[in-house]
Design a protein around this nucleic acid. Sequence first.
DNA 1: TTCCGACAGTGGGGTCGCAAT
DNA 2: ATTGCGACCCCACTATCGGAA
Length: 323
Amino acid sequence: MAPTAERGSAPYPLIRPMLATIGPLPAAVEETAWAFEAKWDGARCIVNTAGDGTLRLITRAGNDATATYPELGPLGAQLRGRPAVLDGEVVVLDARGRPDFGLLQRRMGVVNPRRTARLAMEHPVHLVLFDIMYLAGSLLGAPYYERRSILAGLGLSGPNWSAPAYVEGHGRQAWEASLQGGLEGVVAKRLTSAYLPGVRSPEWRKTKHLQTLDVVIGGWTEGHGGLAGLPGSVLAGVAEPAGLRYVGSVGSGLSERERQELAQYLGVIPLDRSPFVNPVDIAGPHWAEPRLVAEVSFTGWTSAGRLRHPVWHRLRPDLTRLG
DNA sequence: TTCCGACAGTGGGGTCGCAAT
DNA sequence: ATTGCGACCCCACTATCGGAA
């Protein structure tokens, strides 16, 4: 943990980003109390400018990413004379203009200047600015709509950053638009909400586009720590003409009771070799006859053909042959 | 009394960088 | 040169506890 005395570019302190809770779209009847923004699939970024033309970029975990994204440096010059702290999301856009987290991952954590410079040419990042916490003093207590007005007043725009407008009300339209635009979902923010650093507040609510899928369980891995001896995750497959294709492991969302239940089922149908037609590159797999079917949710497919953010929902006994 | 927020701990995909092999 | 592992990024979720409602 960084010492609290540590500071970003003077005169403003480093502050942790405010976070959103997961939940449904605000009800239509109270929509007018909410602002709707696109949920960008990237990395959170706090911008701290000293007003001398320089800036510092801080990740959600408090790490300094200034050297990682040199193409954002000129933003500091645009804020010369106006020390400020801004909040935003770093993204990499694909050829269709949609955020691609996989491309961004190649940029994250790279510190070698030459390598960074080359990557910045190939896959430049774009910083989407959506809040401001300091400008001529603290704005933390100011309501969202006021902070937004101040942010818009700065007129920040450049090849690698922008401060796109939000929508007041019209949550359903925003939801549809985010789906059409290939975005992760929407974030609804109460127009009157203050900025609470480090707090996961119900005043900010994110709603993501989710998919569900029935998968065939072809094995499992043992859990760690308190889950030692129980299935930590199950190996999920999808039936294809060529056979069962491994599409990832699912471990999140299982309760301890469900893990015990799974252990019983899987214990009676062991297999001594993989039931999958493609290689399963994970440590210590236990194979099982592909009989159990489960419903899982996920946010999309990775470039490697795996489920992204897979979550267990339930066993589908109606689709499962145990006999 | 019940409910909610914060925390710790577990699970996932993926990339980079470095130490061990 | 290859491999394994931890550090970062993104996350969802379970289980627990203490304090607010």
